[in-house]
Design a protein around this nucleic acid. Sequence first.
DNA 1: GATGAAAGACTTTCTTC
DNA 2: GAAGAAAGTCTTTCATC
Lengths: 154, 154
Amino acid sequence: MDDTDRALLAELQADATLPYSALGKAVGLSAGSAHERVRKLRERGVIRRTTVDVDPAAVDRGVLAFVMLQSNAWMGDPPTRDALAAIPEIQEAHIVAGSSSLLVKIRTPTTEQLQAVLRRVFDIDGVTGTETIVVLETFFERPLNVTDDPDRAR
Amino acid sequence: MDDTDRALLAELQADATLPYSALGKAVGLSAGSAHERVRKLRERGVIRRTTVDVDPAAVDRGVLAFVMLQSNAWMGDPPTRDALAAIPEIQEAHIVAGSSSLLVKIRTPTTEQLQAVLRRVFDIDGVTGTETIVVLETFFERPLNVTDDPDRAR
DNA sequence: GATGAAAGACTTTCTTC
DNA sequence: GAAGAAAGTCTTTCATC
């Protein structure tokens, strides 16, 4: 995982349809070498998948909310995970530190359907409360930054 | 945007490296027709980009936090947006309803660097407070669900 | 809007360094 | 690990329905 690998990842995050010839040119490698490095990045699991970014509004998922869940027991086990994963509107679920125990990201067509999802969440074993933050506008959502030196900011 | 388009989007979300022949087979179309539909989905902006999903831990971004920002003024304008976008560790930024005005998602290598980012955030005009939720473990992060009927849940 | 086929471009593999 | 080239596959376009 050197700077060339990071540069390849950044290029692929921006446009994974680039041919290896262009990818190689962008990072100063031949097409064959670029291909070999990308193959290894996939093999090692650094690249988890190649995917498309879909506009939520265009598929009628215009409502976005973050919900913090309170519980009366440890929620870090597979049953909780599976119960959350079974709700397709939940896009992310995280165990967190702080007064909540879980944080989930939910997308629905309407606030009415958000309410329906919250009802399902409340039915999960151990859940004792929810706090919902509704998103009014998304400034941006972008790929993980892989290139900048994090020490820069200090 | 019919069920076939949604099926194509679901296939591409799962694996955007599939050849059009396989894509067509999965949804009951010829390779040519699948290609034509995907082309239009890109043209209309339904598909915003083709990208790779990178494992944060593999590129030394193992610390994830959600931060709620309080402010003493309306933060929904471009200057605020640009100030947040200039911080590469911020992966998402949303204007929200509720007691906070903004919610941001931050990834850093260490909690020390999370602290450095919070300091930068505090320096943005109008920011009067932050509340940080540190993620201990991510259950899952998955593509937006595009196929399920949202009425199912009610 | 879908199909099947042709032309061109790209991926993948292999040999060499 | 990188480069260059060959073989095979895929993308893209087009004529047709």
